[in-house]
């Protein structure tokens, strides 16, 4: 009985993630006609990659993909470089106003980017960051940072202080102890932060569209126009857009599972 319940749960969870992806793939591979038929066949009669190939052959998709990867990687890098030390400080040192600081960090997400669009763009033009992946990634970092700081602070809190103190006893400097003892223990969580930063940057449309002209990120390049395209193209686009995220999560899955391990301990 218990085992049955367990199996049903596993199946339901698998279906929860796999069914939408399956329908997306079905729409992307089935071509124009299948998209409008209902109920849909389980297996498309004539699966073909034509739609996806046509989609990828669109001018600028390759260049935009490169910009997107670059922006997402930079965002990930900045979010980790700035977020981890801040999280460590919040976890290990108590200073007056640390509670307020946590709240203020969240406030950066309270301002809608759409309102800031004009002043931001003007500022970026003056700084020479307009239309560069670096500029877009800076804004994406600002969006990803609250999560990075708060999650990494609770992550570092979960690493027992005694381990760090033991390292000091054995002659590590504070920095060395953090790097050689705390960081490896927090690695799974850090992987999650990295994924989150990557995904935020990959999915963000508005900044990517307003701050760039020639060097669009893939999402900005396609998503603004994708919603107005014929359905089968939308499916192909959606399918192509989720693939990198799935691949990335697959690549770091080991670290993610380890994180659940920590939380269960």
């Amino acid at each position: 009985m218990k085992r049955q319940l367990y199996l049903t749960g596993v199946l339901a969870l698998c279906a929860w993630t796999l069914v939408p992806i399956y329908f997306l793939a079905l729409g992307a591979l089935g071509g124009r006609d299948l998209v409008n038929t209902f109920p849909k066949p389980f297996w498309p009669g004539s699966a073909s990659f034509t739609t996806i190939r046509d989609f990828l052959a669109i001018d600028g998709v390759a260049a935009a993909t490169l910009v997107s990867v670059e922006t997402a990687c930079l965002t990930m890098l900045f979010a980790l470089l700035l977020g981890l030390p801040a999280g460590y400080a919040l976890a290990r040192f108590s200073f007056p106003g640390s509670g307020l600081f946590r709240l203020l960090i969240l406030l950066t997400r309270a301002f809608p980017v759409a309102i800031l669009a004009l002043p931001l763009t003007v500022g970026f033009i003056r700084l020479g960051l307009y239309d560069t992946p670096l500029g877009v990634s800076l804004l994406h970092t600002a969006l990803a940072l609250p999560f990075a700081v708060l999650v990494s602070s609770s992550l570092f809190q979960a690493v027992p202080r005694e381990l760090e103190e033991a390292a000091w006893v054995f002659g590590c400097s504070k920095f060395e102890a953090a790097r050689r003892v705390v960081l490896p223990l927090a690695l799974p969580g850090i992987a999650a932060i990295a994924i989150f930063a990557f995904v935020i940057s990959w999915n963000e449309v508005f900044a990517g569209a307003v701050l760039t002209v020639r060097h669009r990120t893939l999402t900005a390049y396609l998503l603004t126009v994708l919603s107005e395209s014929p359905l089968h193209v939308q499916f192909a686009g959606g399918f192509v857009l989720i693939l990198p995220t799935i691949a990335f999560i697959y690549a770091v899955r080991k670290h993610l599972f380890a994180m659940w391990g920590i939380s269960n301990r």
Partner: peptide, 15 residues
């Protein structure tokens, strides 16, 4: 309009 206004204020034109 946002883009044109920004480029005017920033004095860099791309379009």
């Amino acid at each position: 309009p946002t883009r044109l206004a920004a480029e005017r204020q920033g004095n860099t034109h791309t379009i």
